[in-house]
Lab assay of single mutants.
Amino acid sequence: NRKASRNAYYFFVQEKIPELRRRGLPVARVADAIPYCSSDWALLREEEKEKYAEMAREWRAAQGKDPGP
């Protein structure tokens, strides 16, 4: 049972969880929050997504994983 790799979207969703909880939505973990975040993610510009892509690269580097292209 390996841990899933964390991509840019994972970090975006993780950042949104406190806001979703404040709105009273039932989000205990990232998987619960995904349905509420997909439309917001789709509206982000590539420059805005880069922040989360960098977080994912840093996480992979800390895990000793290949950052890929």
Rank of each mutant, 00 (worst) to 15 (best):
R2E: 14
R2I: 15
R2K: 13
R2P: 13
R2G: 13
R2F: 10
R2M: 14
R2A: 04
R2D: 14
R2H: 13
R2Q: 14
R2W: 09
R2T: 14
A4M: 12
A4W: 07
A4G: 13
S5Q: 10
S5G: 12
S5H: 15
S5R: 07
S5T: 08
S5D: 14
S5K: 08
S5C: 02
S5L: 03
S5E: 15
S5P: 07
S5W: 12
S5M: 09
R6V: 04
R6L: 13
R6W: 05
R6G: 04
R6A: 10
R6M: 11
R6Q: 04
R6S: 07
N7C: 04
N7F: 07
N7H: 06
N7S: 13
N7V: 03
N7A: 00
N7Y: 04
N7L: 08
A8G: 11
A8P: 07
A8E: 06
A8L: 01
A8K: 04
A8W: 00
A8H: 04
A8I: 06
Y9G: 03
Y9P: 05
Y9L: 12
Y9N: 08
Y9W: 07
Y9Q: 12
Y9M: 13
Y9H: 09
Y10W: 08
Y10G: 04
Y10Q: 07
Y10E: 11
Y10N: 15
Y10A: 05
Y10D: 15
Y10V: 04
Y10K: 04
Y10C: 02
Y10L: 05
F11Q: 05
F11K: 00
F11W: 05
F11M: 11
F11A: 06
F11V: 04
F12P: 00
F12D: 05
F12W: 05
F12N: 02
F12Y: 13
F12C: 02
F12S: 02
F12R: 01
V13L: 06
V13F: 03
V13G: 01
V13A: 08
V13D: 00
Q14S: 08
Q14P: 02
Q14H: 02
Q14E: 15
Q14V: 06
Q14F: 06
Q14L: 11
Q14I: 07
Q14N: 06
Q14A: 08
E15D: 07
K16Y: 02
K16W: 01
K16G: 02
K16E: 00
K16P: 00
K16S: 09
K16M: 11
I17T: 04
I17P: 01
I17G: 04
I17Q: 00
I17A: 04
I17L: 08
I17C: 01
I17D: 00
P18T: 04
P18Q: 05
P18A: 05
P18W: 01
P18S: 05
P18Y: 02
P18L: 03
P18M: 07
P18R: 03
E19G: 07
E19W: 05
E19Q: 02
E19F: 00
E19H: 03
E19S: 08
E19C: 03
E19N: 00
E19A: 07
E19M: 06
E19R: 02
E19I: 07
E19Y: 03
E19V: 07
L20T: 02
L20H: 00
L20D: 01
L20R: 00
L20S: 01
L20A: 00
L20P: 00
L20N: 02
L20I: 02
L20E: 00
L20M: 05
L20F: 05
R21E: 04
R21G: 13
R22D: 11
R22E: 15
R22C: 01
R22P: 01
R22K: 15
R22Y: 03
R22I: 01
R22A: 12
R22Q: 10
R22G: 09
G24A: 05
G24C: 07
G24S: 01
L25M: 11
L25G: 01
L25S: 02
P26R: 04
V27P: 01
V27A: 02
V27L: 05
V27N: 12
V27C: 12
V27M: 04
V27T: 07
V27Q: 00
V27H: 02
A28W: 00
R29H: 10
R29Q: 13
R29M: 10
R29C: 14
R29N: 14
R29P: 00
R29E: 15
R29F: 04
R29V: 13
R29Y: 10
V30Q: 03
V30Y: 10
V30W: 07
V30E: 06
V30P: 14
V30R: 03
V30G: 03
V30N: 03
V30H: 08
V30I: 02
V30A: 06
V30C: 08
V30L: 08
V30S: 07
A31N: 12
A31E: 14
A31D: 12
A31W: 06
A31F: 04
A31S: 11
A31P: 12
D32T: 07
D32R: 03
D32G: 01
D32E: 11
D32L: 00
D32F: 00
D32M: 01
A33W: 02
A33F: 01
A33Y: 02
A33C: 03
A33N: 00
A33S: 03
A33I: 01
A33K: 02
A33D: 02
I34W: 11
I34G: 08
I34D: 14
I34Y: 11
I34Q: 07
I34N: 11
I34K: 15
I34M: 14
I34H: 06
I34F: 14
P35S: 02
P35G: 07
P35H: 13
P35K: 13
P35L: 02
P35F: 01
P35E: 06
P35A: 04
P35Y: 00
P35T: 03
P35N: 06
Y36H: 08
C37K: 02
C37Y: 01
C37H: 00
C37I: 07
C37S: 03
C37M: 06
C37A: 08
C37G: 03
C37F: 03
S38F: 07
S38D: 13
S38C: 05
S38V: 14
S38L: 09
S39D: 14
S39P: 14
S39H: 14
S39Y: 13
S39I: 04
S39C: 08
S39M: 14
D40G: 01
D40T: 10
D40H: 11
D40Y: 04
W41T: 02
W41R: 03
W41Q: 00
W41K: 02
W41V: 02
W41M: 00
W41I: 00
W41D: 01
W41H: 00
A42F: 11
A42V: 05
A42I: 07
A42G: 13
A42K: 13
A42D: 13
A42L: 10
A42M: 10
A42E: 12
A42T: 15
A42C: 08
A42N: 15
L43G: 14
L43S: 14
L43K: 12
L43E: 14
L43M: 10
L43Q: 15
L44W: 00
L44K: 03
L44Y: 00
L44S: 08
L44E: 04
L44G: 00
L44V: 09
L44Q: 08
L44I: 04
R45K: 12
R45Q: 13
R45E: 12
R45M: 11
R45S: 14
R45W: 04
R45Y: 04
R45V: 09
R45C: 13
R45P: 15
R45H: 11
R45I: 04
R45N: 14
R45T: 09
E46Y: 05
E46V: 05
E46G: 12
E46Q: 13
E46L: 09
E46H: 10
E46M: 09
E46A: 07
E46P: 14
E46D: 06
E46T: 08
E48D: 13
K49N: 01
Y52H: 15
Y52N: 00
Y52F: 15
A53C: 13
A53H: 13
A53I: 07
A53K: 07
A53D: 10
A53M: 05
A53F: 11
A53Y: 15
A53Q: 08
E54Y: 06
E54I: 14
E54A: 09
E54C: 09
E54G: 11
E54R: 10
E54V: 11
E54M: 11
E54H: 09
E54D: 15
M55V: 08
M55I: 08
A56H: 10
A56S: 12
A56C: 13
A56Y: 15
A56W: 07
A56T: 05
A56Q: 07
A56K: 02
A56F: 14
R57V: 10
R57P: 03
R57H: 15
R57F: 05
R57D: 11
R57C: 10
R57Q: 10
R57K: 12
E58S: 07
E58R: 08
E58Q: 08
E58A: 10
E58G: 10
E58C: 07
E58M: 03
E58I: 06
W59L: 01
R60T: 15
Q63F: 08
Q63L: 05
Q63E: 11
Q63G: 14
Q63N: 13
Q63K: 12
Q63T: 10
Q63W: 05
G64A: 15
G64Q: 15
G64E: 14
G64D: 15
G64L: 12
G64C: 14
G64T: 09
G64P: 12
G64I: 13
K65V: 09
K65H: 07
K65Y: 10
K65S: 09
K65P: 09
K65G: 11
K65F: 09
K65I: 13
K65W: 02
K65M: 04
K65R: 11
D66C: 07
D66Y: 10
D66A: 09
D66R: 12
D66L: 13
D66F: 09
D66W: 09
D66P: 11
D66K: 15
D66I: 13
D66T: 15
D66V: 13
P67L: 13
P67Q: 10
P67T: 09
P67C: 04
P67M: 09
P67I: 08
P67F: 10
G68V: 05
G68S: 06
G68A: 09
G68H: 13
G68T: 08
G68I: 06
P69C: 14
P69Y: 15
P69L: 15
P69A: 12
P69F: 13
P69S: 14
P69I: 03
P69M: 09
P69V: 13
P69W: 14
P69D: 08
